[in-house]
Write a protein that binds this DNA or RNA. Structure first.
Lengths: 342, 342
DNA sequence: TTGAAAGCGCTAACAA
DNA sequence: TTGTTAGCGCTTTCAA
C-alpha cells in the first residue's frame, strides 16, 4: 500500500466525505454538493469556506456514489480488438481526447476477434453503468446486441459501416476500399495482382472486393496469401518470398491488408535486388506514420483516424443532448494516396 | 440511444435490480446477492430459480452500487504517456490481461509528458475509487504523490526504477541501458559515436549515460541530435542526413532512443548507398517486432515488456493479499540484443 | 441561499 | 439456508 508517514494512520481520503467538508465549513453536506456541481447557487463566502476545507483535507469526491445517485457515470466503455494495433489506438486517442475534455473517462478493453470475449467484456463494462459504449466493427453477437439495446444508452460502432447499426456508426466501406485499390491498380497499368491478408474479417472483405474487381477487370482472379499471425514487417518479407516461389509474374501489384506487410515487401524486394514498382508493386493500407518515408514511399489507403475518432465522439455527445436522435450512419471515407510503390 | 423495438419502453436494464430478481425468484434481494457472490451458500433450487430470473430479465448487476457498498471497485487506474506508443501499449496489454483474468477492469488515460495533466488525471481516476493505480515513470509531482498516498491504495510505477517509489515499482535502469550500449559499442570496436534522441526524459537519461560512458572510454563525447517530435521512421532518416551534413565520421555508431529512429537510419543509409554497419552502425532501443526483420537486422536493447507487465500485475495482486507488503523494487533488466546493424 | 428527507442498488454484519 | 437491518456517499426533490 502507498503508506503515509509511519505512525499516522492512513487518512485514506476515500474516508473524507462531503459531510466532513460540510462540518469543517459549517454547512451541511448538500451545500457542499452544490458548491461542487453548481457553485453559482452558493454564496461566495460559503463557497470560499468549502473550497478551503477541500484544500485542507485533500478531499476527492466519490464518483461512485455520485453516479449511483444520479445514474450518470460520466464513463464511456470502449472496446477495441487490440490496443497494440496503432490503427485502433490512434483512433481511440482522438476519441478519448474529446470525451475527456467533456468530462468523460474511458474504460478500455481489448476483445480480440472473439465474439464470446466481446460479450463478456460488454457485460463487464455495462455493470459499471457507462453513459455510452464504443465498439469496433459492426458484427456483434445477438447476445451482445441485446445487452446493449437493453442498456438503453448510446452506442457507436466504428471502423466499419452498416445500414443497421445498434445505434449509430462511424466508419468507411471496406468493400469500397478494396475496389478502389483494384481500380487504381488497373488504371495504373498493372495486369497482374496478388493479395497478402491478415486473419481479420475486415481485411478479408477488402481483399475479396479487390480480388473480385481486379478479377473482373483482368479476367483472372489475383492469387492470395493469408497470414494468420499479426501483420509484421517480417511476415511481409516472408509473403514476398512465398509469392516469388509460387512464380509470381514480374510487374505484379500486391495489395496488402496493412502497411506493415507492404513495408516488409519493400524490404524483401530490396534485399533481393528487385526494383519497386517495376518488378513488384505494392499497395498498403492504413497510411501509418512511416508510409511516406519508406524507400520507395508507400502507395496506400488512408483513413483519417483523427477525424474518425472525433466524429465518433461528436456522435455520442450529440446523443447525450438530443431527445430523439436519428440513426446516424457516418461515412468518413478513405483516400487512395498514390506515392512511389505502385 | 440504442432503442428497443418501437412501442415498448426501454427496459434499460439499469432498471432491473437485485430486488426485482428476488421477487421473480421468490426470495429477498440479499439472497440474490449471495447467489452471485457466494453461490455455495445458496440452496441449489433457489440458485436455479434466481439464475432463471436473471436469464429472463437480462439482468446486469450494478457494479457502482456494489463498489460503493463494499469499498472495492475492482477497478485499476492506468496512466501511460501515450497509448499509440507500442512500448507502453504492449506493456499495458500484458498487464491488463492478467488483471482482467483476476476480475479487475482497467481505466486508462493518456497523460503525455505534462505533470499537470498527470495530476488532473490522477484526481479524476481516484474519484472512481480504483483498487490500485499504475503509473508510468517514477517522477511525479508532489501533489500527485500526496493524493496517491492519501488514497491508501497500492500504486505501481513502471518502466523505470527508483529507490523511493510511492509504493512499489517495476522497471529497469535507463542509465544502465545507456552505459551497456556504450560498453558494447566500444568493445565492438567503434571509436566514434553519435546519439539521436526523442524529447522524453527517460530517453535523455539513456543518452546521457551513453555519452558519458562512451566519452570517458574514447576521450571525446559523442555528438547528439535531439528530436522534439515523436520518433518516426521519417525523423530517423532526417537524423542521418543531418549527422552526415555535420561531417559524421565513417564507421560511427549511432545510439537511438527508439527502434523507429534506428530503422529510419537504416533506410536513409540504404538510399544513400551507405553500408551498415561499415559506413554507419546503428543501435536501437525497444526491440520492436520489426527489429529482427530489417535489412540489416537491428542491434537493439530489448526489454521484455510482457514480463514487465506481468510482474507489475503480480505486484499489485500481491499487495491486495498481503498485510504489510514491503516496498518492492523490481528490476526486470534489459538485454542488448546484437544483430547485424552494429 | 440553505437544509431535510429520501433513495440510488448494492454489501456486510447479525439474527433466525 | 435465508432474512433483517444498516449503511456506502452521493444527488434530487421539496421546503424553508
Amino acid at each position: 500500500m502507498a503508506r503515509p508517514p509511519a505512525g499516522s494512520r492512513p487518512p485514506r481520503n476515500g474516508g473524507v466525505t462531503m459531510a466532513d467538508i460540510g462540518r469543517l465549513a459549517g454547512v451541511t453536506q448538500v451545500t457542499v454538493s452544490r458548491a461542487l456541481s453548481t457553485p453559482s447557487k452558493v454564496s461566495p463566502q460559503t463557497l470560499e469556506r468549502i473550497r478551503d476545507a477541500i484544500r485542507r483535507t485533500g478531499y476527492v469526491p466519490n464518483a461512485l456514489a455520485g453516479a449511483l445517485a444520479s445514474s450518470r457515470s460520466r464513463l464511456i466503455a470502449a472496446l477495441v480488438p487490440s490496443v497494440t494495433n496503432i490503427v485502433y489506438s490512434s483512433l481511440l486517442h482522438a476519441f478519448s481526447d474529446i470525451m475527456w475534455s467533456h468530462g468523460y473517462q474511458i474504460m478500455l478493453s481489448e476483445v480480440g476477434a472473439d465474439p464470446e470475449r466481446e460479450e463478456q467484456a460488454i457485460a463487464a463494462h455495462l455493470s459499471r453503468r457507462p453513459d455510452a459504449v464504443l465498439l469496433t466493427g459492426v458484427h456483434h453477437s445477438p447476445g451482445a446486441r441485446l445487452m446493449l439495446v437493453n442498456a438503453g444508452i448510446p452506442v457507436v460502432e466504428v471502423w466499419d459501416l452498416t445500414e443497421t447499426p445498434i445505434d449509430c456508426c462511424v466508419g468507411f466501406s471496406h468493400e469500397n476500399a478494396g475496389r478502389a485499390a483494384a481500380d487504381f491498380a488497373w488504371q495504373a497499368g498493372y495486369r497482374s495482382a496478388a493479395t497478402v491478408t491478415a486473419a481479420e474479417e475486415r481485411a478479408r472483405r477488402r481483399r475479396d472486393a479487390f480480388a473480385d474487381r481486379f478479377g473482373s477487370l483482368s479476367g483472372s482472379r489475383p492469387a492470395g496469401l493469408d497470414f494468420g499471425r499479426a501483420a509484421t514487417l517480417g511476415s511481409g518479407r516472408a509473403a514476398l518470398a512465398r509469392l516469388l516461389e509460387q512464380g509470381m509474374a514480374p510487374g505484379t501489384v500486391v495489395f496488402c491488408s496493412s502497411d506493415q506487410f507492404a513495408q516488409g515487401i519493400l524490404v524483401e524486394a530490396a534485399a533481393r535486388g528487385l526494383a519497386v514498382p517495376r518488378d513488384v508493386a505494392v499497395i498498403g493500407f492504413g497510411d501509418q506514420d512511416f508510409a511516406a518515408s519508406t524507400e520507395p514511399s508507400l502507395t496506400t489507403i488512408r483513413i483519417d483516424r483523427q477525424h474518425l475518432g472525433r466524429v465518433a465522439a461528436e456522435a455520442l455527445l450529440d446523443r447525450f443532448a438530443a431527445e430523439a436522435p436519428g440513426p446516424g450512419v457516418h461515412d468518413v471515407g478513405f483516400t487512395l494516396t498514390r506515392r512511389n510503390s505502385a
